[in-house]
Amino acid sequence: MTVSDITNMASVSPATFYIYFADVEEAVLAVLEDLNGQLPDFPSLVHAIDTAAPEPGVRALVKAYLSFWDKHYAVLRIRNLAADEGEPRFREARATMLRPMMTALEEKFKSGHGPMLGFPEAPVLAVVTVLMGMLERLAAVIRLRPPGRDITRGRLIDGAVMVISTIMKTKEAG
C-alpha cells in the first residue's frame, strides 16, 4: 500500500495526506486506534459463557471474533504482518486490541477451575495466549480453504469451538 493508493481512494492529494500522517504506517496505526473503539464487547461474551455447557457461548464468541476480522481483514492482516516482523508500534497495537479478551478469558479460566484439564503446570495465561493465537490465525486463513477439500468455514468454526469448549468445561479441581 502506498500513499498514492490511499490518496487516490480518498480523492485527496498526497500533500493533504502528509498534513495528517508522516507515512503509510502512521495512517494504518491511526485506523487501528479507531478500530479499538469499534471492538465488539468480547469480554462480555466471554463472561456469558456457561462453563458447564460452554459450546453455545464459545460459538457466539468465535463467530463475533471472525465477523470483526471479516469486516476489517485488510488492516488487521497488515497489523499482524508488521507485528510479526517485530515492528514495536504494531506489536503494541495488536496487544492493545487483544488484551481485553485475553484478560476476560484468563479470569474465566481461573474462576471455578482447578488445574488446566490434567495439566496443573500449564499457566492459564499461556493457555489463553495459545487460544488467542489460534483464533488470530484462524481469522487470517479461514478464507484460504484448500480447493477440493471438505473444510468449510463452518467446520473450521466447529473445530475452534471444540478446542476452546473442551478446555473451558468446568471440572472438579484435582
Rank of each mutant, 00 (worst) to 15 (best):
I151Q: 12
V62G: 11
N36F: 02
V28Q: 13
R77Q: 08
A15D: 08
A27C: 13
I157N: 00
L117V: 12
L125W: 09
A52N: 08
D34L: 09
P100A: 02
V141I: 13
S11M: 12
G174L: 11
L29Q: 02
R137P: 13
M132E: 09
L135V: 02
A82C: 03
D84Y: 14
Y20H: 10
W69V: 08
R99C: 06
R137Q: 14
A53K: 10
L61F: 12
V161S: 03
D70W: 09
M116Q: 14
A82R: 14
P147T: 05
M1D: 11
A48C: 05
V24C: 07
V31E: 10
L61N: 03
T96A: 13
R143N: 08
P120I: 05
L81T: 14
L66T: 05
T129L: 05
L125S: 14
F109H: 01
A126W: 12
E85V: 02
K71Y: 08
R143G: 15
P56Q: 03
T96F: 03
M101G: 08
G133L: 01
A27H: 09
V46N: 02
W69R: 13
V46F: 00
T166V: 15
N36T: 11
Q38S: 13
I151T: 10
G114Q: 07
S11F: 15
G133M: 00
T96S: 09
E26F: 08
M134L: 14
R77N: 14
M162D: 11
L131D: 06
R149I: 15
H113G: 13
L29C: 04
T152Y: 04
M1A: 12
M168W: 03
K63C: 10
M102P: 06
R137C: 15
D50Q: 07
F21G: 08
F17R: 00
L98R: 14
E55Q: 09
T170D: 11
L32A: 02
E136G: 06
D34T: 12
A52F: 06
T166S: 08
K110G: 04
I164Y: 08
K169A: 06
L138A: 07
A10Q: 11
G118V: 05
Q38T: 09
T51D: 15
L144M: 11
V62Y: 02
M102K: 15
M116D: 12
L32M: 00
S67N: 15
L117Y: 07
L144S: 07
P14R: 12
P115T: 12
V128L: 01
V12H: 07
P43S: 05
L98Q: 13
A27G: 04
A93P: 13
T129H: 15
R89Y: 10
T166H: 12
D5K: 00
L138R: 00
E121S: 15
D34K: 10
D23H: 04
G112N: 07
E107D: 09
S11Y: 10
I78S: 11
V46E: 02
F42Q: 01
V124W: 04
K63Y: 11
L81K: 15
H72V: 03
S165C: 00
T2Q: 04
L144F: 12
M101K: 07
A10N: 10
A95Q: 08
E33A: 15
G174V: 09
M1Q: 07
R153P: 02
S165Q: 01
S11V: 11
A173C: 03
D34Q: 13
L76A: 00
G148T: 03
P120K: 12
